[in-house]
Write a protein that binds this DNA or RNA. Structure first.
Lengths: 347, 347
DNA sequence: CTGTTAGCGCGTTCAA
DNA sequence: TTGAACGCGCTAACAG
């Protein structure tokens, strides 16, 4: 088995080796490979040929050090086992290779301290830009402000922050939350519970606003029920059990996070509550398999791929020092409500 | 809006600046920060204090260039919108921060050429090690062999390759495929179709072997039906429609890939075929929501997180030039079969 | 214990 | 059109 002794010095193909082989100066070779206009075309030809033959790849650390550019961006997300974030990464990756860029992934695991440490780690030129979706335990943005002074381009997506002057890419959360709640109300729900992520997430807040506006507009008499869940399935199920056993059992559930709809289904199954007869359920979700649930889950599908792609494009505009168009400073990509049987009208 | 002019030279905190401020040599500062034994504790104290105060972070490119170490690994996967790979990344990330390592993610999109290009890109020291799960269009491993000569540590996981002398981490595919097929047979299926990924994927092959062995052991008279699907939902559904409309309609489906079970459910719904009455379905899958399907899907759950974690540990052993234990050269982590209603015995 | 010097590989300035 | 020299920031060898 190859025990990977590391590429020995002899194997290393670098500018010096090419130069020696071709009887040229290192700088000439460098310029030839960068297609400088001050090099004769025949010299370029010779250089390129040998470089190709020997499989020359410029050392990225030397380049980065010299040019103060890493050709790398970082993506910081709270978790990865989540279709939304996977699709976002896919969208980001639809841009980066063409730009010659590399993508570092960091997971905050919904932990403010990890998020802070990650940002700190990226301080000194490791990346040319950062995209971040905040953890649910992030309640202040000092870690970003401190870091922002370095002047490294930054874009927020989905779980954003309005307090800082940083470009945002997100979906029309409040509007879709309004529509989802309206959807439940029109199908006869009188007592709708909102399942949001604990903490002060921007998406939870925006979605909560839409929920409350709908209750108000339709003059719902039952008081709003805001339920705070977390990323832990076990405790979420316990909280939901109590909700359904409690005095004001909801007849409608609006889950602001996909995972919470899954938890709701699990608990309903366990408690023998029938969806949609006993309780109707709608959720923000990007799960293709939502249509296969029992019953099929009504969902609000976010344009996750597009969010990733647009956020990356904006980041590259910043990196390339291009001016942003006004709408790029706060970009809102619409979601889509898909009605299925979990919110069907019954008996 | 901060247009990100880049950190100016004045803002840059580096060793030189610390040294000047402290009236010390650059090398002394460097050694103090690396806690060298040849520096007095009071000097260390002074240095650390100022470094903390100014928020000093060593320039990673300079370090990497000097030490020929990037503190970065690459993970190459065919796609990311797949629970299995998300969980693998989670497992990898459970190791890397402790090691002070960074993780670059690359997607091959099931494309051999992209895979080759990505490997090429990583040639010159950008990473200290690579973990790869092959694309389904990868039929030869020249791109890996060429690349392996650089001596950079490499680990294969899940979609592996036996032809090269590289450590592997995977699950007991053949055994679980045997069990899955046996499971269907014992529940009355006489004509089981195997849904595998087109191409010559190691996992498809291993799972196919288990399927065939079970058919043989149980002396099934109907000939095996090997169906080749792809990553495209649309064409998969078309192929499945033809399968179910065809002359030897299967009464059991063994999906080697989660996505194919979803496609099967979609087509069965569309064609009004009932699971498990008309056809029973079992699948390799890491989807938590499989239990919520209509009917709940019997699954073989792979230890994805552990595969990621173990593969990363092995990669770090290689990077740190430690000897591998024999079992680490080919590590097999067992999957688990979860029986649900999609394979229930019916009337 | 600390300072001086050299060089990692590249890209750029200045000189020819 | 090409070459020589320098420096990005850091670490390591050598010197004191």
């Amino acid at each position: 088995m190859n025990l990977c002794k590391g590429r020995s010095y002899m194997d290393q193909v670098n500018l010096k080796k090419l130069a020696k082989e071709l009887n040229l100066a290192v700088s000439t070779v460098s310029r030839a490979l960068r297609d400088s206009h001050e090099i004769s075309s025949q010299t370029k030809e010779r250089v390129r040929e040998l470089a190709l033959k020997l499989g020359f790849q410029p050392n990225p650390h030397a380049s980065s050090l010299r040019q103060n550019k890493s050709k790398t961006i970082a993506v910081i997300i709270p978790e990865i086992e989540n279709n939304f974030f996977s699709q976002v990464i896919n969208g980001i990756e639809s841009i980066t290779p063409n730009k010659g860029y590399h993508v570092l992934i960091y997971l905050s695991h919904e932990d403010y301290n990890k998020e802070r440490d990650i940002l700190q780690l990226l301080g000194n030129g490791r990346v040319d830009g950062v995209m971040i979706s905040f953890s649910n335990s992030t309640t202040n943005y000092e870690h970003v402000e401190a870091w922002q002074k370095a002047g490294i381009p930054l874009v927020f997506f989905d779980r954003t922050c309005d307090e800082l002057d940083v470009p945002n890419v997100m979906t029309n959360d409040a509007e879709m939350a309004f529509k989802a709640t309206e959807h439940l109300l029109k199908r006869g729900c009188k007592n709708i519970a909102f399942l949001g992520m604990a903490g002060s997430l921007s998406i939870t807040n925006r979605r909560k606003v839409g929920y409350l506006q709908a209750l108000e507009k339709f003059k719902v008499t039952n008081p709003p029920q805001i339920v705070e869940l977390t990323s832990k399935d076990y405790s979420n199920r316990e909280i939901l059990r109590q909700l359904f056993e409690g005095p004001s059992r909801p007849d409608g559930i609006f889950a602001a996070i996909e995972k919470f709809a899954v938890n709701t289904y699990e608990v309903c199954k366990e408690m023998d509550l029938h969806i949609p007869q006993d309780v109707k359920v709608i959720s923000f979700s990007n799960l293709q398999a939502a249509a296969l649930f029992d019953p099929p889950l009504s969902t609000i599908i976010q344009p996750a791929y597009d969010i990733g792609r647009e956020a990356a494009s904006i980041l590259f505009k910043l990196i390339e020092k291009k001016m942003l168009l006004p709408y790029e400073k706060k970009m809102i990509l619409p979601s889509q409500l898909i009605e299925r049987n979990s919110t069907a009208i019954t008996g």
